[in-house]
Amino acid sequence: MATTFSPISVFAARLMPKEQRFVSGHRACQGCAEALAVRMVHSILGRNTIVASATGCMEIISSSYPDTAWTVPWIHVAFENAAAVASGVEAGLSILMKKGKIPQRKIQVVGMGGDGGTADIGLQSLSGAMERGHDMIYICYDNEAYMNTGIQRSSSTPYGASTTTSPAGSLSIGQHTWKKNIPMIMAGHKIPYVATASPSYPFDLAQKVKKAAKVKGPAYLHIYACCPTGWRMKPDMAVQIGRLAVETGVFPLYEIEQGVLRITHKTPELRPLKEYTKHQGRFRHLDDATLEEIERRVLDEYRKLERREGLAL
């Protein structure tokens, strides 16, 4: 495997900001790429940030009273409303600044949730917050199932994946629906900035986080978050799997800035899908015919994305 995998030569930890806002001591599983992504995002966003988190993995692993992994102000209210809570924080801060009740300065409000809290139960609240134009970032950390409750399927679970509520069986291939495309739904809200990112591509991620923070109005980031526990894979492969997801076209990296799409990591020759699926127990049951069917659709979706590049959506 190591010989066929492109080395992560560009990654140099010293180029990322040293000061952490999401600190060690939390309770995430070994190899959790979601925790890795959260750490990267907040080391980039820095001190002047307030976080509203949905219920989910990142909330339970980071906030078990009396401990906290957060050195920036953080609030958790419930599962499906992180975007609404974040929009409330933004509305509160902006009027207090306008009325001179707190000092005038840039404070970045960030809402965050998993794929369940974003694509399923929190979609309405997210849509409302984005549509209202609050100056905030919403970040979905997508580990493609309800991992916190024990690996149940969400609308973000990929086709063919076996989960505890979409189990592979004699009559089922596992998840039988295609992954819901939340970034494009967000783009449909005509917000100034939408991007996909992955902690396996830290500089691409850093650029996008900075852009999201810079825009006036809502920004949406959809971050790929490999979950070794839920995907039934080796914890030390999380970063590699994240790169393979991009190189096979499963999770393309792109951004939509003021409605114009740009693929930020171009992969003209997609790797065979099997290189991605073979390491993950959730796809182990899939036969060659099914994998080929998935590969055709992944390619088809990727080519569609390429055709949309540079066009105003």
Binding site: V85, V89, L96, G128
Partner: peptide, 18 residues
């Protein structure tokens, strides 16, 4: 877009000190 979000926004803004 809903009362659920109304109360959620209220939680956020009140927590912000408004």
């Amino acid at each position: 877009e809903s009362e659920h979000s109304a109360m959620s926004v209220c939680c956020g803004s009140s927590a912000a000190g408004a």
